[in-house]
Design a protein around this nucleic acid. Sequence first.
DNA 1: AGTTCCCTGAGG
DNA 2: CCTCAGGGAACT
Length: 276
Amino acid sequence: MPELPEVETIRRGLAERLTGRRISGVRVLMDKIARPDPAAFAAAVTGRTIRGLTRRGKVLVWRLDKGLIAGHLKMTGRFDFVDPGTQPEKHTHVVFEFEGRPFELHYNDLRQFGWLHALPDDGLDRVSFWNQLGPDALDVSPDRFRERFQGRRGRLKPLLLSQNLVAGLGNIYVDESLHRAGIHPMTTADSLCEADIDRLHGAMTEVLSEAVELGGSSISDYRNAEGKLGYFQTKHRVYGKSGQVCPVCGREIERIKLGGRSTCYCPGCQPAPKED
DNA sequence: AGTTCCCTGAGG
DNA sequence: CCTCAGGGAACT
């Protein structure tokens, strides 16, 4: 489940090895992963040199000398550097080869929800997902954050998950940010005062930047591009910890369903909002 | 605003 | 066998 800190960690790993490198060949093993279609993807990408990688929310963008690749890992997407000629694994869907054969890069995705989209330089704005993407969660000012949430009637958990308000948070970092801010996930945004929203922004910024520093959270099978684990999961206070004791106040962490997502919170640190 | 679907593997 | 996990699109 790569969210912002994991995608950022992967971005750094890819940038280190790929910047300045020329793609000599691409093999698409699962058609639906490569957009707009496998042939167009391979044609657009083959022979191109990678200038660098950027990120907005959970979307990775490879900047090429001509055109770009936008990619989304969804929950189980992974990039693996492997020796040239390595047999693709069961769930390897795209293989990149590079000039001089220093290594191959295998895109692996067990659930096949992720995608890689080859686009012309000005093409990102034509992808609806990009158009609707809010500002990056690590790049949004307190003022802008306040503007985006103030007065909204929805509950905070689904609002924070929706990428068009702020981009990059998933289930882990929403639960962790709300706990650090001391705000119950069912609270509606319009019931927060300015100071509450600022505190939420601060908590989110802290959680995300600490997670980036530790290389993200390795729960289930997340690895960075070098196959290494992240360590932020050791700092989780509520995510995946229902029934355990809150490290801050000692109350038992509870789990509810909200917007179809399992949601963990501490009833001590995050008191329930007044009834609707 | 809530539900369903996409997909596979893990766990009951 | 069933249910759950999850990001986001596409419904209702």
